[in-house]
Nucleic acid binder design. Structure first.
Lengths: 206, 206
DNA sequence: CCCCGGTTGTACCGACCAGTCAGCCTATAA
DNA sequence: TTATAGGCTGACTGGTCGGTACAACCGGGG
């Protein structure tokens, strides 16, 4: 029965994916703690309670695993940016929401983000290219919001690119200390950050 | 004559130090490009045009070399902070000067700063402890300026620690794109950054 | 002149690296 | 029950790692 075969197959594939994701998440923690190059395959095996063969059954290579961690972060970040775009609103509101979403990802995936910000140079070839492009795409979305704000007169006449980098730095840098279970929630940080930045670029004549 | 011996000795020692510094600088470039763990000792030898024995004559170990790069950066950053403290002035002026100095270091030592921000987890034991302390010391200086500004009423009632981290992130993150020879000087970036941040935390009732 | 100590090249070390492979185990489908 | 295939094992490989040992070199002072 092709139906039964299909369900059996898809169940197996689903199970495979679940396990694979668990491996990616566990490995992200190890990479974050020790560094990508400093972590041996055998340490990943121990952390995941798997033999070498089993681990390689789920990941193609060490670098592919690293790429998967990067994708996990970028998927979340881009999804957040999409939600913001759908929500609409003024450039100020958009920028504020972007901050909420970005800090939420950093807060929820501290290990993945750490790896993403520290080990991205370890990606090579095709993968490196693809990742850089996604990263730039996100930067451009921030830039676009700033440009829009300047155009509407909501923001003063700032350099969009330079200002976007300032905004990104302010937010991304929280990966060093913003952790789940810590004293501050993502929102606790996003609000004062948005306050500083909005006042910083607001058009005083409005 | 002990005088002659002393001068001969000190000249030799000076020469040793000059060479050592050159090795540290060259190695910083290689580490910045490839990563600390991804760089082999033989690559450092090639970059410095030295044999293995000669290289180890100047550096005690790979990690000691990494620590030397960290120290180089922190020495410059702390010296900048000292100059600012000596210059005096209002908290706003102090913070603005701190930004100038910090971006100047990032602009002048892009490789060292890159290594410093990416590879500090590779330091172990005593060295790691010492480095973390110096880093925290700098963070506290920024924090202190913010506290002073709140006290004088120059700044609105912001969280000094959180705001310091925002300021640090905004400035440190420039290591990704601020390079000597690029289109922007350190001052070109420091000025608009200070504009954003000062307006962002200014006390509106003043 | 030789000799001395800072300097340097090179052979070598054990440890560890990422990745492979032949084959075993087990659950499912026929 | 048997055939099949996905899940998994761990010994093994060729190569590279950081670091060391040691002999040779060299320039300057006695």
């Amino acid at each position: 029965m092709s139906q039964a075969a299909a369900t059996g197959d898809s169940r197996r594939r689903a199970n495979f994916e679940v396990r694979r994701q668990a491996i990616i998440d566990t490995s992200a923690l190890v990479f974050a703690r020790q560094g990508y190059h400093a972590t041996g395959i055998m340490e990943l095996c121990a952390a995941n309670r798997l033999g070498k063969g089993a681990l390689y059954h789920y990941i193609g290579s060490k670098e592919e695993l690293l790429a998967a961690i990067h994708d996990r972060v970028m998927d979340e970040v881009m999804a957040g940016a999409d939600r913001v775009a759908e929500a609409g609103g003024s450039p100020s509101q958009q920028l504020s929401l972007l901050g909420d979403e970005l800090l939420d990802v950093i807060h929820r995936y501290p290990d993945h983000v750490w790896v993403f910000l520290h080990e991205f140079p370890a990606l090579t070839g095709e993968r490196a290219e693809q990742f850089r492009e996604r990263r730039r795409a996100y930067e451009r979305r921030v830039e676009a919001v700033l440009e829009a704000g300047v155009e509407t007169g909501e923001f003063r006449d700032i350099e969009p690119r330079l200002t976007a980098m300032a905004w990104l730095g302010m937010h991304n840098y929280t990966y060093l200390w913003l952790k789940p279970g810590g004293p501050l929630s993502a929102r606790d940080v996003a609000k004062p950050f948005a306050d500083i930045f909005m006042r910083g670029i607001a058009n005083p004549s409005e």
